[in-house]
Design a protein around this nucleic acid. Structure first.
Lengths: 328, 328
DNA sequence: TTGAAAGCGGTACCAT
DNA sequence: ATGGTACCGCTTTCAA
């Protein structure tokens, strides 16, 4: 690999001059610039990011912390982040924290040691202390905080919408799945749902479940035994909705006639289910992109029009809910 | 952030000594070591990876290049790679190349500039030239080459198994979906399937399709019009199998009685489909881990028992294929 | 066994 | 407008 010194020699100038044309800083005579650029071309010189980073104490790397990339919601987020970063010439170090605070701390440490210029964190644990006293900005994604900028979807509204839609479509005996306690967004959507259910004077059952499919499978198995008469399920996410759907079909229920199901997230698999899953869509890719933009603005010290960006969610009508007569 | 100088001062020794205890290299008096370690503790010192990397021309970063993290096969691979790397104290810079050679080249450049110690590439394009003349090792994942170490699953056998199983279960008029030409693994499984089909003297249709769901949807729509009498589909991957399954159900076919479907990959969604999809499983997570191990061995200059690791695939019997009577 | 100092490849200050 | 050089934080000779 050619170094800046090689380029300087080739062009017959000093390294300072080369550095100037590289960074387009200070005065350079046009002829000199041309000379240097030719040398750069000729040697196919690319500056060493590590050396830059060492001096400036800033790399072009961003740390991205996720709960688990295998959960299909997160690749969408990640891709949104990456695409935006890539356009800015920034790159991603990715870590999966697996709900384990130690891993989270460890990754933050790694990010520090590599001079990242910022972190985007989509982990779930409410504890923000490892993110305090960092020398670079942090943006939270899919998570609310007021201590840092953040991007998230409107969970309260999502829960409400889910309830509204299922009520509007005629479910009377509804089960609401409640996601993990530790996940704030899960609690928001749950809160929104029961709020709306109460408001509509509906009876309902609340069932705790995690976000994983295997857990939801177990819940599903007992659900129809315990509450054979329910005719509507508001799931905590699409994965658990899939498990419910599965079990319902297995025990011979007709969907959506006997039972309506509404998911949450709109992960790519949802439309592939049979019947395709009606759900509340979180704009995951856009959330990722917005988070990236927010972080970049923070890094550049640009003013933030809003520090906490709440993105809207939408009801995606597919075939686990009944048609409703238009009345307008 | 404390530096090595701070530690040296705190411990009353030189930076060289601190460096020695840090790297456990050269002679150090036990007392001195203790002293230094105490200072490290006290200052909560963590070495600056960037400075290390600059001097040694080697970081602790690995570049991971994927086609698209949103395709559910790749998060599994990525997670396998990450888990192995994490255990070795190595970290991942991730890039999605999107089937675009320019992006691939660009990421390789970025990896170089950041002194990665190796690359794992799971991109599809046969062209390996951007990987030549690198100063660090490359392992290909989900892709065969003899120019570099690689880890992949036995596509030929997978295709054969798919054909065997569907024949064994009584399909007579079979359609084989052929994945993208540019993807070698897709062609392997295709080849395996038709080989077996020919061998069994079956008639079959070949239909080209890409790997994407939307593409497969289009194919599915016309498939049953063009070939209303088929009773078996060997899909090019699970995503396209899902599309076929979808369409088959929509047009009122009974699965697996009227039509058997076999997918390929066993992505997490497959068992969530209804009916759950019978498929040929590639051990994605393990492939990722193996690739990571192989890369690490190469980096450490350890001998490689085998340079190209072929992992076995297995038939996962679920409910888009009929039961077969045991006869043993 | 320990320390001084050179150097990794850049950047930026200070001269000229 | 350009060049010399100290310095970023660490590792590694080399000498003591």
């Amino acid at each position: 690999m050619a170094t800046i010194r090689d380029v300087a020699k080739e062009a017959g100038v000093s390294v300072a001059t080369v550095s100037r044309v590289l960074n387009d800083k200070g005065y350079i005579h046009e002829d000199t610039r041309k000379l240097v650029n030719e040398a750069i071309q000729k040697l196919n010189y690319k500056p060493n990011e590590v050396a830059r980073s060492l001096y400036k104490k800033k790399s072009r790397l961003i740390g991205l912390l996720l709960p688990d990339i295998r959960n299909p919601f997160f690749p969408e987020l990640a891709r949104g982040v990456e695409d935006e970063m890539q356009e800015q010439g920034l790159h991603l170090i990715i870590g999966n924290a697996d709900e384990k605070p130690e891993k989270e701390v460890e990754y933050i440490q790694t990010f520090k040691q590599n001079n990242v210029i910022g972190i985007i964190s989509a982990t779930n644990h409410a504890d923000t202390t490892p993110y305090e006293n960092l020398s670079f900005p942090v943006v939270f994604l899919d998570r609310t905080t007021n201590s840092h900028p953040s991007v998230y979807a409107d969970g309260l509204d999502g829960g409400r919408k889910a309830a509204q839609e299922i009520i509007k479509r005629g479910s009377k005996r509804i089960a609401v799945l409640r996601g993990p306690n530790s996940v704030r967004t899960a609690q928001d959507r749950f809160k929104g749902a029961i709020e709306e259910l109460c408001h509509a004077n509906m009876d309902f059952h609340v069932i705790s479940s995690s976000f994983s499919f295997s857990d939801a499978e177990k819940v599903a198995e007992t659900l129809f035994e315990k509450y054979p008469d329910i005719d509507g399920v508001i799931a905590s996410n699409d994965l658990s909705a899939a498990a419910i759907l599965h079990e319902a079909l297995r025990v011979g229920k007709s969907i959506p006639d006997d039972l309506q199901i509404i998911g949450y997230d709109d992960i790519p698999l949802s439309k592939l289910l049979f019947p395709p899953l009606s759900t509340i869509r979180q704009p995951a890719y856009d959330m990722g992109r917005e988070a990236a933009k927010l972080l970049i603005k923070t890094i550049k010290n640009e003013p933030l029009p809003e520090k906490n960006i709440k993105l809207p969610v939408t009801f995606i009508e597919r075939q686990t809910t009944r048609k409703v007569e238009k009345n307008d």
